[in-house]
């Protein structure tokens, strides 16, 4: 663990030094920053429980709780999401193998306790909303760096942190956002704020990162809020029990495990 922390700090120092020198030479680009953010260390594996609170324009709230497990296998990732609440979906488990190769389709299996059965699922679209929240699967996951074109708009302070303001324009003109503007904190390489613009160019959603913590040597977004300004709906995600490099077993990421109707 100590080794990991030192490695992480070295990486961040290296990134900062690179940024400082690039900045001095005027060579730092929006893509450079996107690559640094994408390659920010986040451990070999991680687990955490997230509580998603959905609030509509009338103030009515709905709460979903999901425990997630992830493990890296080289450039590929295996993940498992286990739904804890609300009670009618408790026990639902979603197993996914994500492949770095864009030509290769991700593998997905869903266990639904009412059916007592695992079924293979498809659907390559990552711009679907996750569990009725204001986050799409893309917002929550890793969007490939090459899927957008970047421009460093400016440097400015936001929420007391030095930030780069980077605009990302999707290569795919049919993508659900026309552009995304991120305020990237220089110290932790995490966003402080993100603005999502819909295809006609109007501001659709704003993500505000409320709480950033260092956990097991890795900087993590512990609490964030996504507000859909057009629909006056917002979703808060708060993490609990987040841990990195805990040695998650290969057995966790198997169809036979989710078939049991519980984790383990």
């Amino acid at each position: 663990m100590c080794h990991r922390v030192i490695s992480t700090l070295l990486l961040i120092l290296l990134a900062t030094a690179t940024v400082a020198s690039s900045g001095a030479a005027g060579e730092l680009t929006g893509r450079d920053i996107a690559v640094m953010v994408d390659e920010r260390p986040d451990g070999e594996d991680r687990k955490g429980t997230m509580t998603l609170t959905l609030t509509n324009s009338r103030g009515k709230t709905r709460v979903r709780t999901v425990t997630s497990f992830e493990r890296e296998y080289g450039a590929d990732t295996k993940s498992l999401m286990y739904f804890e609440a609300p009670a009618d979906v408790k026990g639902t488990a979603f197993l996914q193998f994500e492949y770095e190769d864009p030509e290769r389709q991700d593998d997905k299996w869903l266990y639904m306790p009412a059916l007592r059965r695992v079924r293979r699922i498809a659907g390559s679209s990552k711009n679907e909303y996750f569990m009725g929240t204001d986050f799409t699967y893309d917002d929550l996951g890793d969007r490939g760096v090459d899927e957008d074109l970047y421009e460093l708009l400016r440097r400015e302070e936001f929420g007391g942190h030095e930030c780069w303001v980077v605009e990302a324009v999707p290569v795919d003109e049919d993508y659900m956002y026309s552009r995304v503007v991120r305020w990237i904190r220089k110290d932790v390489l995490l966003p402080a704020r993100v603005e999502f613009y819909e295809r006609q160019g109007e501001l659709l959603k704003v993500l505000t990162v409320i709480d950033v913590r260092e956990v097991d040597g890795f900087w993590s977004m512990y609490e964030m809020e996504m507000e859909n300004v057009l629909e006056e709906h917002r979703t808060t995600i708060a993490y609990e029990d987040l841990h990195y490099n805990i040695g998650l077993s290969d057995n966790l990421f198997k169809v036979s495990t989710i078939e049991r109707g519980r984790i383990q």
Binding site: Q105, R120, I121, A122, G123
Partner: peptide, 11 residues
């Protein structure tokens, strides 16, 4: 048999 194929799963 289950086979994913784009947005479709053949069973």
């Amino acid at each position: 048999l289950s086979k994913p194929w784009g947005d479709v799963v053949l069973r």
